[in-house]
């Protein structure tokens, strides 16, 4: 016990090497002085090398990070451009289709069928009355329970389909029969596009029944409870006129009609 205390006291009180204390100043030999000088050179060298090493490592890391961030930004801009291009192409495609089919009566019938099917699967832009369900994260400092999960969005969307919704979009991202809602990291992805809180879920359906059925649904009750319990945001607003954009959906390759 005593030994330990002494060692600690020594460490804190006497930082000088014992060697210095025990020697009376000796006669300095030149050889020893030269050794001292060499040691000093080595110390300086060590410090400089360590400095250079650290300096060399750091900008390299920073550069790599900057380059990666740059690439992410560029790719994001590129993606937006492509999405915009897809939108204009889709518009011109729809127009061309219309012009081609509008001439004959059978063409007009086919066009009407086509529009109906497109509206149904979410490829065409649709308009109509409906509800806007907004669900958002609670205060983040609370805990993860106050954050909206992919499961929550899925549950709300399912309840909306159940309540008679004919078309649904999440943050402007239209749902199709093959849509996915899932979590990747901290973000929720709808068909591989990230959406952010508060999530605005628009649904078009019978104005007489859709809002009422959804409001009475067990899911709506549960989320109203979450607003009190976790501070989540949840609201249901009836709208007379909603516009949902269409999305792209590749034609099925394996599922063929019989």
């Amino acid at each position: 016990m005593n030994g330990y205390r002494d060692a600690l006291a020594e460490l804190l009180d006497r930082q000088l090497d014992h060697g210095y204390r025990q020697t009376e100043p000796r006669k300095h030999s030149w050889a020893l002085r030269a050794f001292s000088a060499v040691t000093a050179v080595v110390i300086g060298l060590l410090i400089a090398v360590a400095y250079q090493n650290t300096q060399a490592a750091e900008p390299h890391q920073a550069r790599t990070k900057d380059a990666l961030i740059d690439r992410v930004h560029q790719q994001r801009i590129h993606t937006d451009e492509l999405a915009e291009q897809a939108d204009t192409l889709r518009d011109s495609y729809t127009q061309a289709q219309q012009e081609a089919l509008a001439g004959s009566s059978s063409g007009q019938r086919a066009l009407a069928d086509l529009r109906e099917l497109e509206a149904l699967v979410g490829v065409a832009k649709v308009r109509g009355p409906g509800v806007v369900v907004t669900v958002g994260d609670g205060p983040v400092h609370n805990d993860a329970a106050s954050l909206v999960q992919d499961r929550d969005v899925q549950t709300i969307v399912n309840a909306l389909w159940f309540s008679g919704a004919e078309a649904i979009s999440i943050d402007g991202q239209r749902l199709t029969p093959v849509s996915t809602i899932r979590t990747a990291g901290d973000a929720i992805l709808v068909d591989f596009r990230p959406v952010t809180s508060p999530y605005e879920i628009k649904a078009i359906g019978d104005p007489a029944t859709l809002p009422r059925t959804f409001r009475k649904h067990e899911v709506a009750d549960r989320f109203f409870e979450y607003t009190h319990k976790y501070g989540m945001k949840f609201s249901i607003n009836q709208k007379e006129r909603l516009t949902l954009m269409g999305t792209t959906m590749s034609a099925p390759r394996y599922a063929t009609g019989t």
Binding site: A40, V41, V42, G44, L45, L46, I47, A48
Partner: peptide
């Protein structure tokens, strides 16, 4: 000597 070492290292 210390300064020389630093310069040398740099």
């Amino acid at each position: 000597a210390l300064a020389a070492g630093v310069v040398l290292g740099l």
